[in-house]
Design a protein around this nucleic acid. Structure first.
Length: 428
DNA sequence: TCTGGGGTCCTCGGGCCC
DNA sequence: TCTGGGGCCCGAGGACCC
């Protein structure tokens, strides 16, 4: 051991007496959407249920309910009273769409998220199909997050069903490596929502994320640094958050399938294949090293709306259908911006052709806006820059380079004198 | 048998300026 | 004047995530 290494180690050892050990938790709700649906339709418990498709809730049930009992006041009946037979089955579904979530009973048939509805129907024709109800899931999302921050305030939002929590400074966060606090959070969430979650506690976010999968569902896993080789290295590389299907395939071609193999692979060769940044990151990740912190606040970078048509459309033959859809997307983006209090300076469009090839066009405009007519105007200009001779499957509108409305107003006020000077200059 | 919607971040090439 | 490089922004595309 060199002198500097010795000093470093000494520093760690002495600081342990006073400093707290870094403990980061990753919490993941178990089959979140499906579990929320089971709360309102308890009669579906234990049955294969999938959530997805685009049909609205009313379309799915209303006709059937009325047919079943025309005299009953279904509108005021609790959802739990809906008879099983009103729920549509996968075999009856026609149209496009993918599965968003499946209950554990449905997963038993081999159904998984992102699977096409047609394929899922082949695997389990009797599975019940429910439409996605984001409003309801967001309600539960806010609820379970508020319970967490009451107990442990340093929380990072990672989407509707997932968070990171910094246990390091939280009372109880150090006890049994975080197990005590994790149990408390898990129990409190269940008491308030009847929903279960899985928690992993580890020295950093990367490891915590992997640990939270160890004892799913309704499990807790505590992971220590010295267990990386034993518990992380035998896992496939794909388990690392940040290694997707493409990278996994490239790694396999290098003879790397397990995290342990990646950790011990020649760094220079990895960098040669994946570039400086990503190559180095792969090595760090495989060795369980991650310095990133728990981010408690962040601003959105962009905001978008997109839609996939029921059938592919062509500009010349389906103009009367495409135009209102395009305008509506612009209005939705505009509404979202206004509701959330933002202006955008980069207008973007996205098209997906019938061959699944995606193209995007962006344009940064002079003044930020959230006005639907203005967005529509610039988006319409962008449309002229793409190939419209092919059939289109999806259309999207995006606003980027967001700025908070209040910040822009303040900037405008303080710039008033400057812009007057600018105006004078233009006269020359 | 097909393959959603809403995001983030990274890379790369080109243009521009110093 | 030529050449080159670095920094920065923009736009397009792609990988990845939930």
């Amino acid at each position: 051991m060199s002198a500097s290494e010795f000093l470093e180690n000494l520093d760690v050892i002495t600081s342990l007496d006073v400093a707290l050990v870094r403990r980061i938790a990753h919490l993941d709700m178990d089959a979140f959407y499906a579990s929320v649906e089971l709360l309102r339709y308890p009669q579906l418990k234990g049955l294969p249920v999938v959530i997805g498709g685009s049909r609205r809730r009313e379309d799915s049930y209303w006709e059937r309910l009325v047919k079943l009992d025309p005299l009953k006041d279904w509108k005021s009946a609790p959802l739990s009273e809906y008879p099983l037979e009103v729920f549509p089955r996968l075999k009856d579904y026609v149209g496009r769409g993918v599965i968003t979530t499946a209950t554990y009973a449905a997963r038993h048939f081999g159904i998984g998220s992102a699977m096409g509805l047609m394929k899922a129907a082949a695997l389990c024709p009797e599975a019940i199909l429910l439409p996605v109800d984001f409003e309801e899931y967001r309600k539960y999302s806010r609820l379970f997050k508020s319970i967490i921050t009451e107990i442990a305030p340093v929380m990072e939002d990672r989407g509707v069903d997932e968070v990171y929590i910094d246990f390091t400074q939280t009372p109880g966060g150090q006890r049994q490596g975080g197990l005590v606090l994790a149990r408390l959070i898990q129990k409190s969430i269940f008491q308030a929502t009847q929903l279960t979650c899985s928690i992993g506690v580890a020295p950093n976010k990367l490891l915590a994320k992997m640990a939270s999968e160890f004892n799913k569902p309704n499990g807790i896993a505590i992971l220590y640094e010295h267990e990386i080789a034993a518990k992380i290295w035998p896992l496939p590389c794909r388990k690392i958050n940040g290694i997707g299907p493409k990278t996994d395939e490239k790694l396999k071609n290098l003879g790397i399938s397990l995290i342990g193999q990646l950790a011990l692979f020649d760094p220079s060769e990895l960098i040669a294949h994946f570039g400086q940044n990503y190559g180095r990151w792969l090595i760090e990740a495989a060795n369980g090293r991650d310095k990133s912190g728990v981010v408690t606040h962040s601003e959105p970078v962009s905001l978008s709306r997109e839609t996939t048509f029921e059938r592919d459309l062509h500009v010349t033959t389906d103009k009367e259908r495409l135009t209102p859809i395009f305008t509506k997307l612009c209005e939705q983006v505009s509404n979202d911006l206004q509701r959330k209090g933002y202006l955008g300076r980069t207008v973007g469009i996205k098209l997906k052709y019938d061959n699944f090839k995606t193209v995007t066009r962006d344009q940064t405009i002079e003044f930020p806006t959230n006005d639907s007519k203005e967005i529509r105007k610039f988006a319409g200009e962008l449309l002229k820059r793409v190939d419209l001779s092919k059939k289109i499957r999806l259309l999207g509108v995006r606003m980027g380079s967001l700025i908070k409305l209040e910040d822009w107003s303040v900037a405008q006020l303080s710039n008033t004198s400057d812009s007057e000077v600018g105006l004078n200059r233009e006269l020359f």
